[in-house]
Design a protein around this nucleic acid. Structure first.
Length: 508
RNA sequence: GGCGGCAUAGCCAAGAGGCUAAGGCGACGGUCUGCAAAACCGUUAUCCCCGGUUCGAGUCCGGGUGCCGCCUCCA
């Protein structure tokens, strides 16, 4: 809107390129373009992929909540050596492999409550643009043709290495020591823009003969096609800094000029198992699906948000005779349940129907201090480099206050109490819009959680119900000894019983 | 070998030089309870080591030590 004064609060983010935490100044005030390196679809996605998708997801959600107009682009790499290898192994077409695992990817991310990107381009839909960019680079002397292959001439791009903090001499030093060097390349640092097809491989026509794009060129093309040759934020895993993102910069800036391409680089840290990076070669990969068979999706989501996105996240595992256990997820699960219990309590107190929150009629006036600060403190934490662990910390005080009000509310005026609960419910909706947590009907989450937990524990729910009923009878007869014995029996099964005025309920 | 990152309480984890170092888990004490559980209240750290810059450093600089990542496909 021309002429409109935009008064958006300052947002800080850590930019890998400058290595600093800097204020976000977008190309177009009030608007943000984000590109995220998506998956190569040749297998089920693992927890690391979930994190890589979650980081931009939360950034996009938050920026929108702050009033930005966001265009979110995340690609799907559907042409790749690994896809071809899988297709050959399974004896099906590469395109079918890609199609299948792209669908699986969506299924997993949808389960985790991730927003679909506004545009989800695929390499296979951008061949003409890719060929054009490669031709452009060849014309500029930044690429050369060898047989049916085209390579980027790294020596011709003087800015090479800026993102990853390397220079060409250092790189040359290391190069070749670990990998065989293709003799036909002018330099070991040169990378493929276009690869000639071998017999039986999928191929597209090009001026250099049938072949397919190299890995890096696709992101240069898809980002500029959908966001322009300059855009705001580029996301991806830390491991992509070199060479993938370095090469993207070489391609894009080589073609469009030094001050083009991504203005901010946001890289997420890894997920580790027992202190080591999760990777297929180490055989310690957990797919999203494996985890979601054991824990609610929201629990995994919450767990991933308990650590700042740039930091490594330890995913501890305890292997037991009865099965695997993830202590970190266990804690997250309890915490999410605590939030939902509180939400349920606040709703019950206000007589809010389970379908609607109906907290619409919050009158202005006093609320308890923690709840009063909730929304502002949450936004402030998020503005500081999308600090989700700090933002989650902000919830503790209000949660405790609200539970206090639900418990007795002694000493708090009735109108303050109702207003506080209503405000809390309203603010939690804002929180859930940003984090993608705490947005379900409490009963739904709690039931899902209990079922999964019972399954994990191999619990016989019918037996539990029977014991609880027996104990209820004992309590009614004031036979405390029998009641306590039954409670111990339940406790041994991992079941906790709570006695309330309305009777006993059990939980895990 | 080169480059990058990290080191905060028993454990997990925030903290872009300055009020009493967030928060969670656990532990301990208390309120509530038939006793419990849940919930609530309270207690629980001087930031790996050495040196420097500064009126002032967990936060900046230099040097150690120890982890991790990247340099090959990789979120």
């Amino acid at each position: 809107m021309p002429g409109t004064v935009l008064n958006l609060p300052e947002i800080l983010l850590t930019d890998t390129f400058s290595g600093k935490k800097v204020p976000l100044a977008t190309l177009v005030p009030g608007a943000v373009g984000i590109y995220c390196c998506g998956p190569t679809v040749y297998d089920l996605s693992h927890v690391g992929h979930a994190r890589a998708a979650l980081v931009p997801d939360v950034i996009v959600r938050f920026l929108r909540a702050q009033g930005y107009r966001v265009k979110y682009v995340r690609n799907i790499t559907d042409i790749d050596d690994k896809i071809i290898a899988r297709a050959q192994r399974d004896g099906i077409a590469a395109a079918d492999v890609a199609e299948r695992f792209a669908a699986e990817y969506h299924r997993d991310l949808d389960a985790l409550g991730m927003l679909r990107p506004d545009v989800e381009p695929r390499v296979s839909e951008h061949l003409p643009e890719i060929v054009a960019l490669v031709e452009n680079l060849v014309a500029k002397g930044l690429a050369y043709v060898v047989g049916g292959d085209v390579y980027y001439r790294v020596a011709a791009f003087h800015l090479y290495g800026r993102l990853s903090g390397r220079n060409r001499a250092e790189l040359l030093d290391g190069a070749g020591s670990r990998v065989e060097v293709d003799e036909r390349k002018e330099s070991p640092l040169d990378f493929a823009l276009w690869k000639a097809a071998k017999p039986g491989e999928p191929a597209w026509d090009s001026p250099w003969g049938p072949g397919r794009p190299g890995w890096h060129i696709e992101c240069s093309v898809m980002s500029s096609t959908h966001l322009g040759t300059s855009f705001d934020i580029h996301c991806g895993g830390r491991d992509l800094i070199f060479p993938h993102h370095e090469n993207e910069i070489a391609q894009s800036q080589g073609a469009y000029g030094e001050h083009t391409f991504a203005r901010y680089w946001v890289h997420n840290g890894f997920i580790n198992f027992a202190g080591e990076k999760m990777s297929k070669s180490l055989g310690n990969v957990w797919t999203i699906r494996q985890v979601l068979d054991l824990y609610p999706a929201e629990t995994l989501r919450y767990f991933l948000l308990t650590v700042h996105y740039r930091t490594g996240l330890n995913f501890e595992i305890e292997e037991r005779a009865t099965g695997v256990r993830f202590p970190g997820l266990e804690d997250a699960d309890d915490r999410v349940a605590y939030v939902y219990e509180t939400l349920a309590g606040a709703r019950g107190e206000l007589g809010v129907a389970s379908g609607s929150d109906a907290a619409g009629g919050i009158s202005p006036g006093e609320v308890t201090p923690g709840v009063a600060d909730l929304a502002a403190a949450f936004a402030e934490a998020m503005r500081n480099d999308f600090n989700t662990p700090a933002a989650l910390g902000v919830l503790s005080k209000p949660l405790a206050e609200v539970n206090g009000l639900i418990g007795s509310g002694k000493g708090v005026a009735r109108d303050v109490r109702r207003r506080t609960l209503a405000r809390f419910l309203a603010d939690l909706r804002t929180v859930s819009a940003v984090l993608g947590c705490f947005g379900q009907a409490p009963a739904t989450f709690l039931a899902t959680r209990r079922d999964l937990k019972a399954a994990r524990m191999g619990l016989d729910t019918a037996r539990v119900e029977r014991l609880v009923a027996e104990r209820g009878a004992a309590r009614a007869a004031r036979d405390w000894a029998a009641a306590d014995r039954l409670r111990d029996e339940l406790a041994a099964l991992g079941v906790a019983v709570k006695d309330g005025p309305a009777g006993s309920v059990w939980s895990l």
